[in-house]
Design a protein around this nucleic acid. Structure first.
Length: 505
RNA sequence: GGCGCUAUCGUCUAAUGGUUAGGACACCACGCUUUCAAUGUGGGAAUCCGGGUUCGAUUCCCGGUAGCGCUACCA
């Protein structure tokens, strides 16, 4: 029954359950499997583990495929989205959906029963619960007491017949060897030894005919010719069970590389409770794909050099399992913001503006109706200030509608109301005579005017900027005026000055 | 309770049996400047504790402590 390893080279897989949004940790696991496969010119497989029918979420697979595609994590086998958005399957080791492989699992579970490596268990949930309670009361580790493992053959047959008659199925449990130990040779954590006596006789086939993870993962990784299993650290404790199942079938196990957990600031396993941690959430907040990828890659891995900025290609070129850390990494939003700002600054203004449109729209600003050059000019002004694209609406609203004014705000800290009013009137008068609002010309002209009038920059430029933006913080008045002249035009600039002057009366 | 993993600035981390323990984010100060940002310069900030091995330990070993993970007919 055992098939010979075909030596197909590196074959990794990402095997999520279709239970909803894509967790940031899942993205990292998927990314690492992909990077490892690409770095080694291998194959990356996407397998869907939907053996828990209760947790299934409609549309989860389609969503997963969309997110992975968007993020640039590719799969050579398994499911993919066609050009017209349909889900399709490719690869010669399918089906890649576990619920379509039930016969395979059942056949193999039965085989283990025949070989004495597994056994039927007829215990009721109630009995299991009682056993557990008793063990806990006695401060013993809660484990199945192996009641059914030692049933006499005729008793097993009798119970089996009774179950069948009642239309029920017993579960099948794997029989852990009584003695000895199993050693995991983990590519990240090194050797870890487990004594067999502390291992539970795990259910491998449920009464609904579905396998549990433990059986399905071994059978699928084997038949799909997976060479390296890359998964979260939380799987380490069940790895010896998987190794024992490989052994029971006489199969060569895969290599294992467990990844350190990504944790909350309080060091618990990263969870939804402590904020939005799905990839979709981050995208919605205006984090860029490349920033997210770069950031996620550094959660538990680093190149051991001082390079911090990595494109996907850089990551593929440098990724190495031996450089994965063992300790959990806290997800630090500050660093993500910094990285995101960096990637934002690397874009062209046009590209930025295009990416910004949905965020403007989300804030009720109908950016689509504006000239692309105007939007690009606005984007250009905010480029070095933005951390997240979602900030754009609040920061640039004054480019789409005249701002309101707080009279106090119009007055520079070293000036007063009368001087400010005078300054605004003078600068308005002066701007009326200007036709070229392009920044270099405007700035030179205005600064010369200020010098000629024997004024200081602050008492003129501060109120000018506030008159134009209504904001305490913003880009400078020349930049804003230049862009405003490009959009609504010079009269809008003069109009805003007039409004501001009136506010001071 | 049992089993396992982990432990360097607040955070991500580098390094070594001998270093002023390096970098980045964040923070602070200064420069630029009408404000903010970007940028430049500078600054504060770490080897969990106790033993052992060693001339010498942050590094190797043992113990402790702490944190986390697992302990389902969930994955």
């Amino acid at each position: 029954m055992a098939i010979d390893a075909k030596n197909l080279g590196v074959r990794t897989r990402f095997a999520p359950s279709p239970t909803g949004l894509v967790h940031i940790g899942s993205l990292r696991t998927a990314l690492f499997a992909f990077l490892f496969a690409r770095h080694n010119h291998g194959v990356n497989v996407l397998r869907i583990e939907d053996t828990d029918q209760n947790r299934k979420v409609e549309g989860a697979l389609e969503n997963l495929l969309k997110v992975m595609k968007l993020m640039g994590v590719e799969f050579d086998e398994g499911y993919y989205l066609t050009a017209d958005g349909k889900i399709s399957e490719k690869g010669e080791y399918g089906p890649y959906l576990q619920s379509k492989r039930l016969d395979l699992y059942q056949k193999h579970a039965e085989q283990l029963v025949q070989n004495g490596k597994a056994y039927y268990c007829f215990c009721s949930e109630q009995r299991l619960e009682e056993v557990r309670k008793e063990q806990v009361a006695l401060k013993k580790p809660p484990m199945y007491d192996r009641h059914c493992r030692y049933l006499k053959p005729q008793e097993t047959q009798k119970q089996l017949a009774e179950f069948k008659a009642a239309g029920k199925n017993p579960v099948i449990r794997f029989a852990i060897p009584d003695e000895g130990q199993t050693v995991i040779h983990d590519l990240v954590y090194g050797d870890i030894t487990y004594e067999h006596r502390i291992l539970d006789d795990q259910v491998i086939l449920k009464s609904d005919g579905f396998p549990t993870y433990h059986l399905a993962v071994v059978i699928d990784d084997h038949y799909m010719q997976i060479s390296h299993v890359i998964r979260g650290e939380e799987w380490i404790p069940s790895t010896p069970k998987h190794l024992l199942i490989y052994q029971a079938f006489g199969w060569q196990p895969t290599e294992f590389a467990h990844l350190p957990l990504i944790v909350n600031p309080d060091k618990t396993k990263l969870s939804k409770r402590q904020g939005d941690i799905s990839v979709e959430d981050f995208l919605a907040k205006g984090y860029l794909k490349n920033a997210l990828l770069n950031f996620v890659a550094f959660l538990g891995w680093n190149p051991k050099t001082e390079q911090e900025i990595f494109s996907l290609d850089d990551l593929i070129a440098q990724f190495d399992l031996s450089k994965i850390n063992k300790s959990g990494a806290i997800f630090d939003p500050n660093k993500l913001d910094w990285l995101n700002g960096l990637y934002i600054r690397q874009m062209s203004a046009n590209e930025l503006a295009e990416n910004l449109i949905p965020f403007w729209q989300a804030d009720g600003i109908d950016a689509k109706t504006h000239d692309a050059a105007y939007l690009a000019a606005i984007a250009n002004l905010e480029q070095q200030r933005l951390k997240r694209l979602s900030e754009i609406g609040e920061r640039t609203r004054y480019f789409f509608a005249a701002p309101g004014y707080d009279p106090e705000l119009l007055i520079w800290k070293k000036s007063d109301k009368e001087k400010t009013k005078q300054a605004l009137s003078n600068i308005k008068q002066f701007l009326t005579s200007i036709d070229d609002f392009r920044r270099p010309n405007l700035e030179t002209a205005v600064k010369k005017f200020i010098a000629d009038q024997n004024l200081d920059n602050g008492s003129v430029l501060w109120p000018l900027r506030v008159a134009l933006t209504g904001q305490d913080k913003s880009p400078g008045p020349f930049e804003v005026a230049e862009v405003l002249a490009l959009g609504p035009g010079k009269h809008e600039i003069l109009n805003r000055l007039e409004q501001a002057i009136n506010k001071l009366s």
